[in-house]
Design a protein around this nucleic acid. Sequence first.
DNA 1: TTGATTCATTGATTTGAATCAATAGTATTT
DNA 2: AAATACTATTGATTCAAATCAATGAATCAA
Lengths: 196, 196
Amino acid sequence: MLDNFFDKLSNGITLTEADKAIFRQHVIVKKLRKRQYLLQEGEICKSVAFVSKGMLRSYFVDEKSNEHIIQFAPEGWFISDLYSFITEDSSNLNIDAIESSELILITKTAHVYLEKAVPEFFKFNYMQYRGAYISLQKRLTDMFTLSTEEKYTKLLKIYPDIMQRVPQHMIASYLGLTPETLSRIRKKLIAKKDKF
Amino acid sequence: MLDNFFDKLSNGITLTEADKAIFRQHVIVKKLRKRQYLLQEGEICKSVAFVSKGMLRSYFVDEKSNEHIIQFAPEGWFISDLYSFITEDSSNLNIDAIESSELILITKTAHVYLEKAVPEFFKFNYMQYRGAYISLQKRLTDMFTLSTEEKYTKLLKIYPDIMQRVPQHMIASYLGLTPETLSRIRKKLIAKKDKF
DNA sequence: TTGATTCATTGATTTGAATCAATAGTATTT
DNA sequence: AAATACTATTGATTCAAATCAATGAATCAA
């Protein structure tokens, strides 16, 4: 059940069987049907979710009720609203399942406890946050630098698997484009390809 | 000399005098004149800098040789290219002094050593990365949501001190605008204000 | 102090993406 | 299988910001 989860952790830190037993005691397994929410705007984000199966997304809705996707989280990824999780302020984000999914939830108290009880987990999170920061910085600079077309092709290149599984308008939303614009870009790309 | 630096650290963790002594032994004080580089594109980022006086900026240059400012770092802030610092790959960024500045440098070996020797420093960095990630996410969502005018006024509101000290075209660069556009926005804002 | 850069403003024009609108195609549901 | 809801495409138009270009201010260095 927690295999994927332990695999992920082992990819960076080393866990003893005793450590794993502690995790098993403090973690919650949860299933989510397609379109079900894990978190809704206004709630406090009570846990960090590891996706062991399926795919979730986090997004916010602006005043014009446009959705902006912040993150896709397929199997092997973590998702949560870190801001709300840390501060216990109410969240501006929604998190829901794009596909029927299976999650490992770590509640706030569990998270605090586990970081103390399993120092390697603290270290894991340290690296996780640091890595997330670095990736996000890359994403931001790409936003500034790349043309719309380049943003799209780069995304396809980096996450071909995710892009395959996600409806086109969500890709547009992640890139900060309208679905119309993305549709036109794809048309242009196909035209280019056909030339050769 | 290191007062500002210890103040910053103490704002989150507790350091003993012994800890401080260790820091004093492993840290380098450096002065930088206005326009001098701390890091240039192509180099490996060898240290994290704490700004005790003055102000630096990090930025990259795109193919059209436009500068894009990633971060301003006035006194009390850290700056570096974390990506290059961690991976020891060569950096795409430049870091230079906007004003004549005074820095506390922590080299990579010092950083690794200090995190071991002063566990509280490890904890500090954990929080630092986590916080930086959360702020960056806010910045990204603002990029998507806010109008150009709103981005500018929000920036003024959050960092009035920094905006005071920085030339206008750098603010434009930070916001991802041309200097012309920012100039026109300011004109519009002044016109609005004059109405009341 | 006087050139020389660098910086900010303003105007005219172009351009890329958003918006508005309609239609066709694809899934879901009952 | 029909009905209803999503999803993607295409066209026409609008709009905000970039680009191009010129001038005026301010800062810097000799």
